[in-house]
Design a protein around this nucleic acid. Sequence first.
DNA 1: CAGTGAGCGAGCTTCCGCTTGACTT
Length: 782
Amino acid sequence: MSKNLVIVESPAKAKTIENYLGADFTVKSSFGHVRDLPEHDMGVDVENNFMPIYEISADKVKVVNELRKLAKEAEEVWLATDDDREGEAISWHLKEALGLPDNTKRIVFREITKTALKNAIGKPRLIDIDLVNAQQARRILDRLVGYELSPVLWKKIRIGKSSLSAGRVQSVAVRIIVEREREIDAFQSKSSFKVTARFDLGQGKVLNAELPKNFETEADALAFLERCLGATFTIKNLETKPAKKTPAPPFTTSTLQQEASRKLSFSVSQTMTVAQKLYEAGKISYMRTDSTNLSEEAMGKAKEQISKEYGTHYHHQRVFKTKSESAQEAHEAIRPTDFSTQVASKDRNEQRLYELIWKRAIASQMADAQLERTTATVGISSTREELIAQGEVIKFDGFLKVYLESSDEEGDEEQKGMLPPLNIGQVLALSDLKATERFTRHAPRYTEASLVKKLEEMGIGRPSTYAPTISTIQKRGYVVKEDREGQQRTFKELTLQDNQIKSKVSSENYGSEKSKLFPTSTGMIVNDFLVSNFQDIIDYSFTASVEKDFDNIADGKIPWQTMIERFYKGFHGKVAEAQEQKIDRSLTSRDLGEDPVTGKKVSVRVGKYGPYVQIGDVEDEEKPKFASLLKGQLMETITFEEAMELFKLPREVGFFEDQALVVNIGKYGPYVKHDGKFYSLATTDDPMAVTEERLIDIIQEKRQADSSRTIREYDENPNAKVLNGKYGPYISFGKRNIKIPKGTEPASLTYEDILKLAEGTEEKPAKAKAPARKPAAKKTKK
DNA sequence: CAGTGAGCGAGCTTCCGCTTGACTT
């Protein structure tokens, strides 16, 4: 056993550090936090100065036991968790859990290099209890908010099949999505006419120019074209200005998620999983960071690589200031551990992400790109308006040699090309002059990654929680990530060509969405409830204001209990008030009108399985009719006409193999039922309009897919099959899935073999919760 | 999984922020 035990948070980091520190040091990791408030209880004694109750987390018992043993054997323990609020708290919890003395040495370093480590070891300090208290305040505030608000939702809004929840971070994330959707719903598109001209310069060269301002009406656009009939077009002015482009800083968690989403179409969680693999393989630095900082050593290595690969004039050292105010900067920016490594993995996605990280980090240490922007003004003999043509020439590519950041704006950033050679006074031959109707666009819906960006800008959430937050709001049923088909619309186009003006009407698809976040009715209802009852908690500035308090606690200016007390007084009062309120049914239902046939009331409500329309009342003699809403329809916005359409389901859409094809919509979306089996419709199929041919296709496709997965079937039992799954072959036996023992050839399994293998396994219950069992359990208690 | 949805009401759910595997079909 070595003399020194060093404890860090991550095992990969432990391994690296051990190599640097030598034989006298054993380096172990805590795997993050080891103690926390209890999961199934508030764990905060509100009556007793908010005293928290901590317990060793279930999955950390083993780690803690091992560390306790090693700590006893060691002469000296060094707490080397991250240099931020959470890291300080982890050290304190370790000290408490391992029974270490108060003077245990605490060391910090922000980059893993030999010098940084030596410096840290030479300058140990004690645990900063003020900083720990700031973390405790953060933890307790989040617990109070989350565990008091969520039960209010359970009591006041019982909808959806998943349990509802609220919290400082997730509720704001949902609010952002809901408000954007409402903004889009209220958006009125305006059309205008954009004028573009094409000139033929001969020898295959073309000049494209446009009018700087659009015309608001077709009449204005037409009048302009008429004025241009027979006009002469001349280059009136040429202006050239130097310009430059500067590289973006190296990646933080949030910017990595955004770029991987735009350039590689990765989901936020996929990015993190792939990055974790690269980190564990030692290929990149830590991937959960809010810092854009590179270590001196890293900048030196980047310089070497750039000079070697592109020449020294491509290098330009840059130190980036971190933008975000909430940044805690315990780590470096995300960068390759070795800049000379360009191939880091055989896995395609790992390699693609690595390349992105490598390029971005390298580019951040490269020279600006030098450009030349040329603006040509085209005068028109018959009118005072002028056309403008713009071009760009790259004089020195600099960092553009390796990397260009992409943008969220759709299609706006067309690459400007070079202008052909032009002279002032040159007369241009017009090929055509067009006025095309264009429409203003609503603000874009959020993607996972652009929501992360927004949250980060608002200082809400941390690098380690962006991905989990995004998945929580989807799991709770507040938000769905979907593709939506666009709609057709027509637009007008006026063309002046060969001294004639022609008008044409064309159609285009607009508003289609891919992998965007949409609020559900549940999300909107819960959001509205929270906004009207807990305005300040889900206010966009709430986190920022409590962060100021946490800073004051960390600076020793106020005791954490004072801050929590002050907050809790007002907050708990509002919780109590909301509990007293009658359930507001208008939140979860809306009247649409009367059925013209029966005169019965038509209303839309949100039930256990989502929003649905109901005709009639449960008290009526005749049972009410129900129909679920389609994807994309919301309780808040559905119209009476759309609602009545739904009652055309279930529809019988023809026959196949002597059985009817019935289209309906279930809990999990639209499906076609045929011969007692269910086949899901694709998201692009409209259940109201899908044809017989298409349905037969769907059935045959599904059968084809199933049969290609089947390795063996059994006459004795149609429910027993050997199938090929994502992770290799397995046995599907009724509702059970059984592992195939190692060394067994799946195709050789007989039915008897399967029965034997099934013996030891338990039948999986259809639903995890067996409702009949619970009351019985209570009886025994009594 | 897929012919629910109200209300009755037992007993359940839940937060944010640090970390990795275990598990899946």
